[in-house]
Design a protein around this nucleic acid. Structure first.
Length: 820
RNA sequence: GCCCGAGUGGCGGAACAGGUAGACGCAACGGACUUAAAAUCCGUUGUCCUUACGGGCGUGUCGGUUCGACUCCGACCUCGGGCACCA
């Protein structure tokens, strides 16, 4: 018998699948669709185990659904813009474009070797003009809708990447990519107004029942909705400062007023006063602090008096204005009404600077008038609050706000932690922002007919000195589209997350050249039925994609409100307890595994070793186990074929029936497991079927092999295996005499009656402890169960000389005898 | 600090709806085949006591509910992740 030659088999079928285009699809209204998508890779050079895991999981889902008769869209592409390409250019002198294209070519080949069932003709490469053109076009549409604006603001600056970062890209004060401490820098930048969609992005999370709860929680936290009121405080000169508060009920307890050190009003307040110097000093000190120091909750709060006062709108009291380092310019209005009695931070601050603490909420039955040891942040009855005294504070929130509203000094409002999305990047390798600056006309968007703004190839990429585009004369110099006068082009490029925020729509019609995507095709395929990728994209990519989809829906470009109906976040691949990384030297190269054992083994192991959501510990021995299993499959199927030729027994004896039962039980188990993504147990069920097939020969000896049964076993086994190990299943499928691809065959049905055992094991317990196991007919009645259980010899020693208090019967399963 | 998630053999992991804990795989050990090895096939394998029959104990810890708890409830411990002065 010939050996399982995985190299030959895999090469053969990858070629055949490609030639016959069996995975290509088109919109067909008669067929139900499934859109299965894995997050497209960044072309960093080679695929790694994380990719193998991600794409193997997706491929099982795609192949399974295809066999279930769905019209399956399963595309792949490359998220091709980004910093590593520029770094490679700096380090190795390769042009980012050439580096990227070279990597894509390598990775495409590696993905093909995995035997993934992609619609290869829909490949998207985001750095190609026919893709990024539409990214620019979308920018212009967003601009028209007022969702894009330019603003000079303090931005997160990574000095190593020499570019700004969105808030989401700052991880505990450091750059998400390189880990450098993020600094603040004042720059004129472009923003997407994602905050306009904050409410919808938050509320619609409730509709996403197919998303993991923790991803939704992370997005909810990120959006950070809080209900409260804005309150206007007036300055002596008649000017007003507005604050946001969630506790208008504590307004009478406001004994001082805080501004963020960066607040623009501060200069005006202290100019020419005796406080000017100390305030300046304080502001400089805060400015020197890193983002980490500034935001660490443990650090002691610092402040500084400005010499000015504001009027509390509810009681007319003058309260001093202080600067405090814990007040953030980026949240609310950068100004805070401080209520030390009922806010922990304000309490510490008041203690430190000896400011008055006046309780205005009191817990029933307690007396706060003698002073507090700590801030009381709970609920209670309002005291010392003028006309509101005696009110429960919950009512107070409403009553005080209504009161302020009548005076025009306050109003209910909702505040979000979510900030607008800063998309400007001072980098070369990205999508150029399609805007022109004209001295006469100001900011002028590039007309749609002039798109795309081509990213020039002939640039010099250097480590320092900002964007190379800014030094590219023929790129910068443009003609103003409005007045035809000389003008300058914007040299910033867009955050690469803009490219990945709509690629899933482009896959519906990747060659469309009149619009970003064909609406009819998009409406047929969207939303993505199953999206699969890493948890690290829980906030950024997934939130941005939801935002884009909602805007596009509002533009009537697509019907989908949400892009991804179901989301699966796969766990990391680790080795020796740590994430695989070059610096730790624990990287396993997928290519080596494929070379040694084949793609089917690699896929099978990675799916078998752990459920998709969990971490996966890599094990070289485990890989051998998977390889061994595929060899077992190879041998037993071939043996079955041999026996088919020589045997023609068709009668089913008990041994035959038992194997047939396992076949059907396995179909049931594997089908259910794939639906729930328990791919590891699906594979173990297939292994059990194979083991049973071996055992069958043992039990039968050489005679009486049932040929009709073996046909069934071979067929069902291969069909079940096909999504997991597509090449070997296809090869053996052909050997069993099938002309059509197994991957276009129908997923098997199981017969519930055949799957049921004729005999079951009756478990007999005494006081919940297993004391006997008795084989009984499957259709046993409860009465019989009780009789058989009580007459068990093994039970005797446990129930004699004791009173049987109760007998609990779980039908067709268990009898528990309760004795005293 | 707050919010999630997870703790099961030597290891990766099963147990879907409270009902046989440890499926399947790895490793280990034994047997068959072989001149031998590899490969393969067949077994054993939670732990303790017992020659055996059999029994005790066992799902991070402590308690509770229940005839019965890996599963439900309460408290705690450890690990992983997210947020972290958000007014």
């Amino acid at each position: 018998m010939e050996k399982y030659d995985f190299a030959e088999i895999e090469e053969k079928w990858q070629r055949k699948w490609e030639e016959s285009k069996i995975y290509e699809v088109s919109e067909d209204p008669k067929l139900s669709k499934k859109y299965i998508l894995e997050m497209f890779p960044y072309p960093s050079g080679n695929i790694h185990m994380g990719h193998v895991r991600n794409y193997s999981i997706g491929d099982v889902v795609a192949r399974y659904n295809r066999m279930k008769g769905y019209n399956v869209l399963h595309p792949i592409g490359y998220d091709a813009f980004g910093m590593p390409a520029e770094n490679a250019a700096i380090e190795r002198g390769i042009h980012p474009k050439n580096w990227t294209i070279k990597n894509i070519n390598t990775m495409r080949l590696q993905l093909r070797r995995l035997g993934l069932s992609y619609n290869w003709d829909r490949e998207i490469i985001t750095c190609e003009p026919d893709y990024y053109k539409w990214g620019q076009w979308l920018f212009l549409q967003f601009y028209k809708r007022g969702l894009v604006y330019r603003k000079k603001s303090k931005v997160n600056w990574c000095s190593s990447c020499e570019t700004v970062l969105a808030n989401e890209q700052v991880e505990s004060g450091c750059c998400w990519r390189c880990g450098t401490l993020v600094q603040q820098k004042e720059l004129e930048q472009w923003f997407f107004k994602i905050t306009d969609y904050a409410e919808r992005l938050l509320n619609d999370l409730d509709e996403l029942s197919g998303w993991p709860e923790r991803v939704k929680v992370m997005q909810r936290n990120w959006i950070g909705r809080s209900e409260g009121a804005w309150v206007k405080f007036s300055l002596k000169g008649g000017q007003t400062i507005t604050v946001f508060t969630t506790r208008p009920d504590t307004l009478f307890g406001c004994t001082f007023f805080l501004l963020a050190p960066e607040h623009p009003l501060v200069d005006e307040l202290v100019k020419g006063t005796s406080y000017e110097n100390t305030v300046k000093e304080f502001r400089n000190k805060v400015a020197e602090q890193t983002e980490i120091d500034r935001t660490s909750a443990e650090i002691e709060k610092n402040g500084c008096f400005t010499g000015s006062y504001v009027i509390n709108p509810v009681n007319g009291k003058e309260v001093p204005i202080w600067l405090a380092d814990y007040v953030l310019m980026g949240y609310g209005t950068g100004a805070v009404m401080a209520v030390p009695a009922h806010d922990e931070r304000d309490f510490f601050f008041a203690k430190k600077y000896n400011l008055p603490i006046e309780p205005v909420i009191q817990l029933a039955g307690e007396d706060f008038s003698s002073g507090l040891d700590e801030a009381y942040t709970g609920e209670g009855i309002m005291i010392n609050s003028g006309q509101f005294t005696g009110m429960c504070n919950k009512e107070g929130i409403k009553a005080v706000t209504d009161f302020l509203k009548k005076q025009g000094k306050g109003e209910f409002t909702v505040n979000y932690r979510l900030r607008d999305w800063l998309i400007s990047r001072q980098r070369y390798w990205g999508n150029p922002i399609p805007v022109i600056y004209c001295d006469k006309c100001g900011v002028v968007p590039v007309p749609e007919k002039d798109l795309p703004v081509i990213l020039p190839d002939d640039v010099e990429i250097t480590e320092k000195g900002g964007s190379p585009l800014a030094k590219h004369e023929s790129f910068i110099n443009a003609v103003c589209p409005r007045c035809s006068g000389p003008a300058k082009r914007e040299t910033d490029t867009m955050d690469t997350f803009t490219c990945s925020s709509w690629y899933f729509l482009r896959y519906a019609s990747p060659h469309e050249d009149k619009s970003p995507f064909d609406a009819k095709a998009a409406n047929y395929w969207m939303p993505v039925d199953q999206y699969i990728g890493g948890i690290e994209h829980a906030v950024m990519h997934l939130l941005y994609s939801r935002f884009f989809t909602k805007v596009l829906k509002d533009m009537n470009f697509c019907e989908a409100e949400e892009p991804f109906t179901n989301l699966l976040t796969q766990g990391m691949v680790i080795k020796d307890g740590a994430k695989m990384s070059k610096s730790k030297g624990n990287v396993v190269d997928p290519n080596e595994i494929i070379k040694t054992y084949g793609a089917d083994t690699a896929r099978l192991f990675i799916l078998f070793a752990s459920p998709p959501e969990k971490e996966l510990e890599w094990s070289d021995q485990g890989v051998q186990g998977s390889y061994r299993f595929l060899n077992r499959v190879w041998r037993i199927v071939r043996k079955n074929i041999e026996y088919l030729k020589s045997q023609d027994v068709n009668e089913f004896d008990n041994i035959d029936k038992e194997l047939l039962r396992i076949v059907h039980r396995t179909i049931k188990k594997v089908t259910g497991d794939i639906k729930r993504f328990n791919l590891n147990t699906a594979i173990s069920a297939i292994m059990e079927l194979v083991n049973a097939n071996y055992k069958y020969y043992d039990n039968k000896g050489e005679s009486g092999i049932n040929s009709k049964l073996l046909v069934e076993v071979n067929e069902k086994l291969l069909l079940l295996l096909a999504p997991f190990a597509p090449h070997i299943a296809e090869e053996l499928w052909e050997m069993t005499g099938n002309a059509k691809s197994i991957h276009l065959a129908d997923w098997p049905f199981f017969d519930e009656k055949l799957a049921k055992a004729e005999e079951i094991t009756l478990v007999v317990q005494v006081n919940g402890k297993v004391r006997d196991k008795i084989t009984v007919p499957a259709d046993i009645e409860e009465k019989e169960m009780k009789e058989i259980a009580l007459s068990s010899k093994r039970l005797k020693q446990f129930i004699q000389r004791k009173e049987v208090a109760k007998v609990i019967i779980v039908p067709k399963k268990l009898v528990n005898v309760v004795v005293r």
